[in-house]
């Protein structure tokens, strides 16, 4: 009889590094990583919660968002994730990130292009990057890292490396974060 494989689940693989888009100081006591999908309504609902949490616990948190597009159910999720990365390449990641979550029903290319222009992006470069899928490998790397970490739906949060199992409400997340402050 062989012994069972010793496998840990629900542990964040690939810690935050320079490849990630982050908010806060790397020296903050609590590292929060969200895996999300711009077309997922639950992520849309969690977006203002995360924004409020980052506001209320600004000095305690180092936050990163990684892409986990559920491409078989959300037809625009992959495109939206690549759009955020393309905006990020021009130094405007979070503006696009916020716009995408605030306009979840308008994630078609024409609307995203208009948003990119409003944000002040170089539209030619933005369109070229999307057409060439320049950031598809990064989005896929985020996704694979999520799978390997035990992301089990979106949004999934990791607090200091461990999958958070509670609800995505401000009260519950604040309480979970405060345990590490």
């Amino acid at each position: 009889m062989r012994t069972s494989l010793d496998i840990q689940q629900g542990q964040l693989q690939m810690p935050i590094s320079r490849r990630d888009h982050t908010i806060g100081s790397p020296d903050a006591p609590v590292i929060l990583v969200e895996f999300g999908d711009y077309q997922c309504p639950y992520c849309g609902a969690a977006h203002p919660v995360v924004t409020a949490l980052l506001d209320e616990r600004a000095s305690a948190l180092f936050f990163a968002f990684r892409h986990f597009p559920l491409t078989n159910v959300h037809e625009n999720a992959q495109f939206a994730a690549e759009s955020a990365e393309a905006a990020g390449a021009q130094g405007h990641y979070w503006e696009m990130h916020n716009w995408l979550f605030e306009h979840q029903r308008q994630l078609q290319p024409s609307a995203v292009m208009a948003a990119a222009a409003a944000i002040g992006l170089d539209i030619d470069r933005f369109a070229q990057d999307l057409a060439a899928h320049a950031f598809l490998p990064k989005v896929q790397e985020d996704f694979m890292t999520g799978l390997r970490s035990g992301v089990n739906g979106t949004p999934t949060f990791f607090i200091n490396g461990a999958r958070y199992e509670g609800p995505a409400t401000l009260e519950a997340l604040t309480e979970a974060v405060d345990e590490f402050r």
Partner: peptide
């Protein structure tokens, strides 16, 4: 059976355990 896992009620176990088992 190389690996098995019984998930707590109501918790979606995700795919990380499966991939780690396939790796092993």
């Amino acid at each position: 059976v190389a690996w098995s896992y019984l998930s707590p009620s109501g918790v979606n176990p995700g795919a990380d355990g499966i991939l780690a088992a396939l790796d092993a």
